[in-house]
Design a protein around this nucleic acid. Structure first.
Length: 363
DNA sequence: AACTGTCGCAACCGCAGCCCG
DNA sequence: CCGGGCTGCGGTTGCGACAGT
């Protein structure tokens, strides 16, 4: 439209950091007259600033209801969850975080959370594991590609898959597939747990036995049996020393014994049509379970409380949500249709293709 | 102590949408 | 309906603080 910018310098308007005197003038004026009509406000308040600068200073810094200081774990987790739903809609995210401004959240995301997710091997945009960091050869050597695998008979064209490696970076379905293959590769090592070493995902095959030993009891408590992937006591029996290794205090256990870049994903393969997503608040960890309605189960659990500071999950108590894998919608026990399942899971999206064995469909 | 590189945050910039005459 | 003004939003930048050498 070609209108003149409101903040041109032809009037000698001041730019740059605000002084305390300017702040006080702005505060005094707004307290007396309220805000509105930002274009005329600076003149009336005796400020050599443009209205835009005044509005920004007020909304991002001087507003009395602004909460300063470090982000709490609850806030951080909320930001991650909301970002997985809303993307870079900082104002929308800020609207759900009382006292925080969009600018502050945006800065915090770019300087802390985004870097952390990248370091963990998670794409901060898609909130999915980054396929470009996966060792594709180890994926291809996974159980699914052994000649006794059901997939062997499906005549997969491996070179075709390799050729799609780059393209797969932008194909969400292939990302899902690779994620699943990746998990299967870990499972092949007769290990019920998958630790994603987020510092270097390429070294996933180097399983950290120490962490494994620490994590094993995590899922062996009666507290977790209801949300575990294992459908029977017999399956639970495959874990040794389940009573001895039980931590006295799970919350302390989860926050003190793990590195922030470790994820813990017990899995069993299977086809899934529909999942139940649960959040166990008593655990002070975010726990999500995907349970198929078939005979085989698949579960995903993320210990998210190791991100920064020990704290509790922001979700309301007793929140249980059902996630329909086909529609992608997430409905909690109050019947509210959540926009995205990530509200009740965590930063990692785990979606299992409806027909995982039909690999050709993804290529 | 001096220099250099990195990080974090406040502030700026430009664009888009809404409102109103 | 149209155009100008205002506001809000998201991306980017500049600079001070801090860490490392």
């Amino acid at each position: 439209m070609g209108r003149t910018p409101c903040c041109d310098n032809k009037n000698g308007l001041k730019k740059g950091p605000w002084t305390s005197e300017e702040d006080q003038k702005l505060i005094d004026y707004i307290q007396e007259h309220g805000y509105g009509n930002w274009r005329t406000l600076p003149k009336n308040a005796g400020l050599q600033r443009c209205g835009k600068s005044c509005r920004l200073r007020w909304t991002n810094y001087l507003r009395p209801d602004i909460k300063r200081g470090k982000f709490s774990f609850e806030e951080e987790e909320t930001i991650i969850q909301l970002h997985s739903i809303l993307g870079n809609k900082w104002s929308a995210i800020a609207a759900r975080l009382p006292g925080r401004t969009d600018n502050e959240i945006k800065n915090y995301w770019n300087t802390h959370i985004r870097k952390r997710l990248l370091k963990m091997g998670i794409d901060p945009i898609t909130h999915s594991p980054r396929l470009d960091l996966l060792d594709i050869s180890s994926i291809l050597n996974s159980s699914m590609f052994q000649n006794n695998s059901p997939l062997w008979s499906s005549q997969i064209n491996l070179s075709r898959l390799l050729g799609m490696q780059q393209q797969s970076l932008i194909n969400p379905e292939l990302v899902k597939l690779a994620t699943y293959l990746f998990s299967s590769n870990q499972q092949q090592k007769n290990n019920p747990y998958l630790i994603i070493q987020q510092n270097n995902v390429q070294e996933n095959q180097c399983f950290d036995n120490q962490v494994q030993d620490q994590m094993a009891p995590l899922v062996q408590t009666s507290q977790f049996q209801d949300i575990l992937p294992f459908s029977s006591d017999a399956q639970l029996m495959q874990f040794p020393n389940m009573e001895e290794n039980l931590p006295a205090n799970y919350a302390n256990f989860s926050t003190q014994n793990y590195q922030m870049n470790d994820y813990y994903v017990p899995m069993q393969q299977g086809s899934c049509d529909q999942f139940i997503v649960e959040k166990n608040d008593a655990s002070e960890a975010t726990t999500s379970t995907f349970q198929s309605n078939n005979t085989t189960n698949l579960s995903y659990q993320s210990v998210i409380s190791n991100l920064s500071t020990p704290s509790s999950s922001p979700a309301p108590p007793n929140s249980t949500s059902k996630y329909n894998a086909n529609s992608g919608s997430c409905i909690n026990n109050n019947g509210d249709d959540r926009e995205n399942m990530n509200y009740c899971s965590s930063m990692l999206k785990f979606e299992i293709p409806e027909n995982i064995w039909d690999v050709d469909e993804f290529i």
